[in-house]
Amino acid sequence: MAKEQPDHLTGTEARAGTTPHMARVALFGGLGLVIIIFAIIVLAAG
């Protein structure tokens, strides 16, 4: 009986798809919000 799957899979084959770039959006969005909030706090205190 022949093997149907190869012994070694690439990362994409093991995940059975691609990864969306939602983590990148969340990280940059959060960083932007922190910068805006920090600027508001600094301007309000000064």
Rank of each mutant, 00 (worst) to 15 (best):
K3P: 01
K3W: 07
K3M: 13
E4A: 15
E4D: 15
E4G: 10
E4P: 02
E4R: 11
E4C: 12
Q5K: 13
Q5P: 04
Q5C: 12
Q5E: 13
P6G: 14
P6T: 10
P6C: 08
P6H: 07
P6K: 13
P6S: 13
P6R: 05
D7T: 15
D7P: 03
D7W: 07
H8E: 11
H8V: 13
H8W: 08
H8K: 12
L9V: 07
L9Q: 07
L9Y: 15
L9E: 07
L9F: 14
L9R: 03
G11C: 06
T12S: 12
T12W: 08
E13H: 07
E13C: 06
E13G: 14
A14M: 08
R15Q: 05
R15V: 05
R15A: 14
R15E: 03
A16E: 06
A16M: 10
G17W: 14
G17R: 07
T18V: 09
T18R: 08
T18S: 15
T19H: 03
T19N: 06
T19F: 07
T19Y: 03
T19R: 12
P20M: 03
H21V: 09
H21N: 11
H21W: 04
H21L: 10
H21S: 13
H21Q: 08
H21M: 04
M22D: 04
M22V: 06
M22W: 14
M22E: 04
A23H: 02
A23Q: 07
A23F: 08
R24H: 09
R24S: 12
R24W: 07
R24I: 04
R24D: 06
R24C: 03
V25C: 03
V25W: 10
A26C: 03
A26Y: 03
A26F: 08
A26I: 07
L27R: 09
L27A: 14
L27E: 13
L27D: 04
F28T: 02
F28R: 06
F28N: 00
F28M: 04
F28C: 03
G29R: 01
G29Y: 01
G30E: 02
G30R: 00
G30M: 02
L31R: 02
L31I: 12
G32A: 04
G32F: 06
G32W: 02
G32M: 02
L33V: 10
L33Q: 02
L33Y: 05
L33P: 00
L33H: 01
V34G: 01
V34D: 00
V34A: 14
V34M: 08
I35E: 00
I35Y: 05
I35L: 15
I35P: 00
I35R: 00
I35M: 11
I36R: 02
I36N: 01
I36E: 01
I37K: 01
I37Q: 02
I37D: 02
I37M: 09
F38Y: 09
F38T: 15
A39N: 09
A39M: 09
A39T: 12
A39E: 04
A39I: 05
I40P: 00
I40W: 10
I40G: 05
I40E: 07
I41L: 12
